[in-house]
């Protein structure tokens, strides 16, 4: 087995060398094209922010003909994305699998030993940074952050905060809120942000920290109310919603929306997909969507992205450890 790996690695190294010596990456990218439909693994269930954005990318890629083969989205949301991570690990060397990530890309392997080291995966492109907002049902009396804190305190630990899986982004933001204000929630995990949004409107939970995109339809219909945004500056779509930091509470949290590939994807394929995402980032559809849904479209690729992933992983390690200590 190890011998096999060695030869494959050696072959890859040779290819890489040949690539550097031979022609430019771009020229090679034109040589390589997907030979069959490309599987786009989504680390979350259907209807949530990650799912919608991945499907939007798929649609734009196909509409603008950025890939000669269809892109097939596959949801593998089980176990806070562990299912998807394990799947990607098993696809080593495959040139026809890419994965849309969210922050559970680093938090899930930190929390559970699933035998996955994200440093081994091949980063492709970070498309955007998504934002977090605290939402309550429009029927509730809560108008401000102070009202909210008072209401949670009054509920004596029984305030139902809905979100994605325990240890995922939503639960981290919830933990930050709890630490900052000394309050306690009952955290109810759901499969995706879409389901969380529905349960908030249906009155089955009391609050959520969903991304704006997940809540937009209900917000436009006047069914939910944004209370506070966890961003450094106010969001253009919600100019009247204050940020936590302007009120003196330092809670800022982002969700990255990126694409990665399995370990050992051929370099030509990596170049192909990177170029595909660069073209995608420039499309009008994407730019419009990002501004409407309060996303920060800040693209990075390659080594820079890998460095970002590793830095975020160590940051989250600290956050998770402090969460474990406090509970």
């Amino acid at each position: 087995m190890s011998k096999f790996n060695f030869t494959r690695r050696a072959a890859m190294a040779l290819t890489a060398t040949a690539m550097v010596l031979g022609s430019s990456v771009a020229a090679l990218a034109e040589d390589w094209k997907p030979q069959k439909p490309v599987e786009m693994v989504i680390m979350a269930g259907q209807g949530g922010g990650a799912d919608r954005i991945a499907r939007l990318f798929q649609s734009i890629i196909q509409k603008e003909n950025l890939s000669n083969m269809p892109i097939l989205p596959v949801n593998k949301g089980g176990g806070s994305g562990a299912e998807a991570l394990r799947y990607l690990k098993d696809k080593e060397g495959d040139a026809h699998v890419i994965m849309a990530t969210l922050n559970s890309y680093y938090t899930t392997p930190l929390r559970t030993d699933i035998g996955v080291d994200i440093a081994e995966f091949q980063p492709l492109a970070r498309m955007a940074m998504d934002t977090f907002v605290l939402w309550v049902n429009a029927d509730s009396d809560i108008q401000t952050l102070d009202d909210y804190v008072a209401a949670v305190q009054a509920a004596g630990g029984e305030w139902k905060m809905g979100g994605t899986g325990t240890g995922q982004e939503d639960s981290l933001v919830t933990a930050m809120l709890e630490k900052e204000f000394g309050i306690k929630h009952t955290y109810v995990p759901f499969k995706g942000g879409g389901t969380v949004a529905k349960n908030l409107v249906g009155g089955h939970i009391d609050a959520t920290v969903n991304n704006p995109a997940e809540q937009m339809g209900f917000w436009q219909a006047g069914k939910v109310r944004p209370i506070v945004a966890f961003t450094p500056e106010r969001l253009a779509v919600f100019p009247d919603v204050p940020t936590a930091s302007e009120m003196g509470h330092d809670i800022v949290y982002w969700m990255q929306r990126s694409f990665v590939a399995p370990k050992g994807m051929p370099a030509e394929a990596v170049a192909y997909y990177t170029e595909m995402f660069e073209q995608l980032a420039a499309t009008e559809e994407w730019q419009t969507y990002a501004s409407e849904k309060a996303l920060v479209a800040d693209m990075i690729t390659g080594d820079e992205l890998q460095a970002y992933f590793l830095e975020e992983r160590s940051k989250h390690d600290t956050i998770l450890n402090s969460m474990a200590e406090s509970s």
Partner: peptide, 28 residues
């Protein structure tokens, strides 16, 4: 009406709708 796909197929339909600039939800 709620933007929640009930099945994998409706999730794909939802993806198509997002592409066409339609926001599924109560306002649709």
């Amino acid at each position: 009406t709620l933007g929640i796909p009930g099945s994998p197929t409706t999730a794909l339909l939802l993806g198509g709708m997002v592409m066409w600039g339609l926001v599924p939800g109560p306002m649709l």
